[in-house]
Amino acid sequence: MNLIDIFITSILTGNIILTNFLGICPFIGTSDREKNAIGMGISVSIVVTISSILTYLIYHYILVPTDTTYLKTIIFILIIASMVQVIELLLKKYFPSLHQALGIYLPLITTNCAVLGIALLNVNNEYNFLQTLVFSIGSSIGFTLVMYLFASIRERMETSHIPRCFKGAPIALITAAIMALLFSRYGG
């Protein structure tokens, strides 16, 4: 598959939230304000891109030669968890203002399935290094885009009349269903 294909697919038709169902927890949980959605989106994008590069290198240069690919789940989650810690420390030291803005989202990312999911998808789809990079950047953009759009819709929804039992998560899920339908139609 060529790079442009992977890029467009990962943003629209193969969107990480709406068709792969990864990162649903922050999608439902923190996307009730546009500002939060952007913060979460940027944090996830940074972590996803760096972790994809690291996991690619470790998988192909350590796990494959030593024939220990069955350990990939544990190794990947360890890399992601420690990397999130390092990023947080670096941000705190060198970009305190950015740390203040994104600080609350970073610890949540360790248990965000989008990060581990993209690392595993890269391996499963047998992408080479460039494809891995393009796929992870595309997925990050797709994640941020959908988070932002969804948060805008939810802000508008606060003022509308919704049956009491559908308030909150249920109506959010139904909105997501309509968005998923639209995004899948980009395939033509």
């Binding site: 709406l18 068709t19 169902f21 559908f166 998560a169 249920p170 109506i171 959010a172 899920l173 139904i174 997501a176 269903a177 309509i178 968005m179 998923a180 339908l181 899948s184």
Partner: peptide, 11 residues
């Protein structure tokens, strides 16, 4: 389809 998953769970 994927959108049906969201719809069913929401309902």
């Amino acid at each position: 389809s994927p959108s049906g998953a969201f719809l069913t769970l929401g309902l």
